[in-house]
Every structure is written in C-alpha cells, then in structure tokens.
Design a protein around this nucleic acid. Sequence first.
DNA 1: CAAAATACTCAAAACGTTTTGAGTAGCAAA
DNA 2: TTTGCTACTCAAAACGTTTTGAGTATTTTG
Lengths: 340, 340
Amino acid sequence: MATLKEIGAELGLSVTTVSRALNGFPEVSEATRAKVQEAADKLGYRPNRIAQRLVTGRSGMVGMIVKIKPDMSADQTFFEILTGLTAALSARETDLVLAVDQENDPILSYKKLLERDILDGFILNAPVINDPRVDFLRERGIPFVLHGRDRPEPDYPTYGIDNTAVSADSVKLLSQLGHKRIGLINGELSAAHANDRLAGFKTSMAVLGLNADAVRNEASLESHGYIQALDLLSQPNPPTAFICATTLIASGVMRAVRDRGLTVPDDVSIMAHDDALPLTRAINFEPALTVTRAPLRDACEPLANILIDHLNGTPARDLQVVLNAELIVRGSTGPAPKEE
Amino acid sequence: MATLKEIGAELGLSVTTVSRALNGFPEVSEATRAKVQEAADKLGYRPNRIAQRLVTGRSGMVGMIVKIKPDMSADQTFFEILTGLTAALSARETDLVLAVDQENDPILSYKKLLERDILDGFILNAPVINDPRVDFLRERGIPFVLHGRDRPEPDYPTYGIDNTAVSADSVKLLSQLGHKRIGLINGELSAAHANDRLAGFKTSMAVLGLNADAVRNEASLESHGYIQALDLLSQPNPPTAFICATTLIASGVMRAVRDRGLTVPDDVSIMAHDDALPLTRAINFEPALTVTRAPLRDACEPLANILIDHLNGTPARDLQVVLNAELIVRGSTGPAPKEE
DNA sequence: CAAAATACTCAAAACGTTTTGAGTAGCAAA
DNA sequence: TTTGCTACTCAAAACGTTTTGAGTATTTTG
C-alpha cells in the first residue's frame, strides 16, 4: 500500500506536489502530473480514506435505518431500495452503513448511530406525516434526504413522486371511462404517501361530485386487498372500479372480484400504483394491470446524488424533486358497465 | 465536541495522561483518573473514531454482502440476520457496511468493497460448497467469519449448526416412531447446508437399512413443499413421514397432506428444521410442528463476536463453533400408521 | 544516606492526508 | 536595473488519537 510519501520519495517530489498532482490542482505542471500519475499507478497507490477523512472531517459514509415491522411488509420495497442505493452511492465513493430499528422510539436508533460520529448524513425512507426523525435531524443540523414528503413545505432535500397526483390521475382516468363508484384500497395511513393518496382521492372525487366513502386503509398485503374488496363488493351500490395502493393489493382485489363471479374489466375495472417491484409485475396480471408507474429503483440514484450534493454544499431548496408518475393504461380498466 | 487536548488544557494535564486515564492504563493515578473522567463527562467527550482508526489501522467497520436472488427467497432470513447482527456489532463499537450483490460473479462485489480499504473484515453467510468467496478472502488475507460450513476442515472462523446431525436426529426420531418410508423436502443443493442435510439423511437412512430416495431439493417456498409432497404422496408406497428443510416448506407439505385427505400425525408425520423466523412459527401450526430448532437470531451475536475476536488476534482454530440444534417434539409427529 | 525501585507524568513522534503560506526561478513590463 | 508577474514547488501545520521513550518526583531498600 503505497503512500504519498513513498511516491514523493520515488520521484524526488514533496508530498504536497504529489497530492496536488493526483487531485488535479492547476498549479502543478503537466509533465509532473504525468510522472506522478504513472508512479502512483505503478505502486498501486490508493488514498487512505481514514486519513483523508481525518483532515476533511468527512467520513464518506451515510446511514440508513430500516424500521422492522412485525409483518415484514417492508421487505420487498426495502430490498429494492437497498440494491439501487448501494450501487449509486458506490459510484460516488460513498458507503452505506445500515442499522435496523427494533425500538418503539423512532429516534433512538438515529441517536445511537450518530454517537459513533462517523456518518456524514442519512437517507430517510418511508416517512410518516411530520416525521419525527426529520425534526430530530434538522434540529441537530445533520444532513439528510427524505424519500417522499412528510410536510407541505420542507426546507431539506426531498425526492419523491406526487402522490396526490397519482390519485388524481387514477380518478380522472376512471371517471373518463364513466365510473361513478370508485373504491380506494389504500395502504396504512401512518405512511405519508398513503395520506397523500387519500387526500388526492378525496379532492378529485369531490371536484367530480362523486362520493368518496369506499375507502380502506391498511397494510399492503394481498389478503388486505382481497378482504376489503370482497367487503366493498358485497355492499349495496358496490364500486365498479378500484384504485389500489400497490400491485400486491391489486392481486388480492382481482381475486375478490373473480370470487364474486365478476369479470375484469367488463364488470369491474382495477388499477394500481406500480413501484415496479420484481415479484408482482403489473404486466403479468391477466388482464395486464393499468397503473400509475414510478419504479422504486429509479429513485435510488437521485436519492444518493441529492444527499451527496447536499453534503457538498448545494442548498436544500435546489434539491427538492417531486416527480409525476407515468400513467400506463392496460387491459384491467375499461368503460363502466351500463347501469341497469 | 471536546478533544483530548481540550480536556488536558482544562486540567493542566498532557494529552498522553488524559488518553491513558480514559483508556484505563495502570500507570495513571486514581485521583487523576477520576478528575479526567469527570472533566470528560462534563465536556461530553467522545473519542474521534476516525483519528483512532488512523493510528490503530483499524476501521471499526465490517462488511456484509447480500446476494440478491430473483425469487427473493432470502428475504426473511436475511432480515433476521441483519437485525441481530447490527445490534451485536454495535455493542462492540463496530458498524456494518452493506452492499448488494447483483452480479453473476460472486467475487466482484467483494473486490469492489475492498477497494475502498475501509473494512476490517467480512461476514459471509449462506455459503455454497467450497465457497469461492472464502477462497478469495483467504488468499488475500482478509479476515472473515463464515456462517455455516462450506468444507470439512476450515482454517478460518466459522459458526453454525451441525446440519448432518439435524437430519440424523430427525431420521432417528421418526424411525423410533416406526416410520420406514421417510421423505426429505430439502432446500436447493447449491446451499452448503442443504448438502449437509442431504448427506446426513442418506447416511442415517442407510445405517437403518432404509431407502432414501424420496428426496426433493428446491428453493424454500411453500409451493415447493406443496408440489413435491403431493407428488411423493401420489407414488406407490408413499412416505409416512416428511422431514422439511424449513417451516415454510412444512406448511406446504401439510397443505398437501390434507388435500390428499390424510391426517397429521395419524397418517403422515411432519417435522421441519426451525430457524425461528417470526413469520412462520412452528408453534402456530395445527398440530404444532415437531422441529429441530436453532434460532437464526441466536447466531448473530456469536458471529459478530467471533469476527471481532479474530480481528483482535484470536486464532481461527479457537473460533470454530459447531452447535447442535435442539429437538423439540410436538404434535405433528406420531407413530407410523399400521401397515395394511 | 545513597542507591534503587516505584509511581506518575509528559513531550514528541507517528498514522496519511489536505491545506496554508512561503519561496524560487524565469520572464515580461516599467 | 528594478518591479511585478507567472508557473511551479515545498516545508510545515493541521486533523485527534495512540504509543514510545524519557523524565521527575516520591518511596523503598540496602
């Protein structure tokens, strides 16, 4: 493991010059830079990150804390995020330190990890409304990026899709197809995104003068979709269309519709929001699922870059991204059935 | 953030003495130590890990690379390990750097992470037979601990259960109950533990003079258990007992047995190996499942400690632990049905 | 009482990098 | 010639810790 000193000794140059040559400073001559570079390559030089960090005060590591739920429902999305994130961070010389939160107190794990004093910042995912982790980190001046949006006017970096628009787009499509009774099988309301979906649903329905009471909010499970859809379908004046929070829920809803002897999309239209998780793919549904689509994987690189840019000094207001999900119409939605 | 220098200045002591006082060196007087400790507490001193690491040459971080399978079957066990591991490492001032392996080459991710030069060692899980990661790390002299056993005579730290004994114990129990036709619904043979289970099964059966051909090796899924059990049960001279690699498989097997109109344990006995994962608990089966039990969570603390001890100089041969799983007999196993 | 041992303390070096402030040489402008 | 650039290079300080080797009182031993 060669050091700057060794390279300097080899070439009769000072450590300073070697350091500058390798870091592309303008005040070193091209001839010298070439020599240094060559020697560095020959000796297999790689900077000692620890030493770099001691002097720069940066650690090159960011933290993420996974909250573990008893139903493990977060598994799939977490894996998806983790995969993309480590790859994206790695491309910018940053590593991910992971901890698992088993506590009731959502802050405690962050405190513990911060005590180590080795993290430059955090990636926060799955926010709840007015997320306490946000308040905690903001108060302490710890940089972070939030995946999603936990409050209307954040003053920190965020990245996510517009979940009220997801609902609005879905309602719009279905109402244009003539649907009047539209059900929403939503995720748990503790999650900020589920709140936004619900809010978007209610206002869009209200604008159209439609009744928005066929709503269920629960964990994203196939069984949740099945049970709630079955229940809604058995009530008087049942929905002719369902908007599902996830493809997993949609698969339960579709099963319920069929168990009731109904057909998709002739009797009931089904659509969902699609995070593009590898296990339940919208395209593999029969008929293929109409979705608002925003691959979770696509969020990883921006999340990593936003955090690192923020660490490098880009102000938060330039790092707040809200995207719109794509609307992809497939076979699972169709015109509302004729009223009898 | 107080430093040693600041504490020294406060008390009129040298950095050396402050450092020694806090680290419990014997050559500092008790009076001084008390003063220093008090000042450190007052100023909220916490050692700068980066500085410590620069001088000690240790980074205080260990790596783990998750291999991502298309079927995501590793999810649950991975989460279990992750949770316990981060907690155990944290207790010894060590952090976990995680990477996700999406490559075909099992080594590439390790190479990449090692290039960073910030890791003290690795935790390897889910070994295959003669695991290439082991060869790679061993060759480079990178410390690691293997969860499980990938070859007969390892010269590196390992921790795991005796999987041949798991099969042997299971076979013994069932044969004592009079079973002669015993099926094994195993995991994928690419995994070292599945190999050991199979080997243990074959030799135990051979010793008893029993036929060991009712064996299926595939991914640990409920559907695998269901399909394979159904198939074995439909053949002439079907098994009267099943040994399942996991409780997930066992649930599939139990469903198959019932779909065939048979009863557990009167017609067919079922037992499984139980990693004690929170989602499929052996005790919640109806009847409760007889198991060889070795909670995955229990492995985390030893794994963390073994690796850190090894980093601190304990030789590998003192860090090779093979445990026996516990045999817990419950209602899902019973005497073999009378021959007709 | 001198010599030796003990108990405690410290200055300085080291880890490998970045950054500061200074310096030298060569050359053009005054 | 002097002054002031430009282009390049370097020694030294800094980051915060651990560790080495030496030193100074104080106490014990002969």
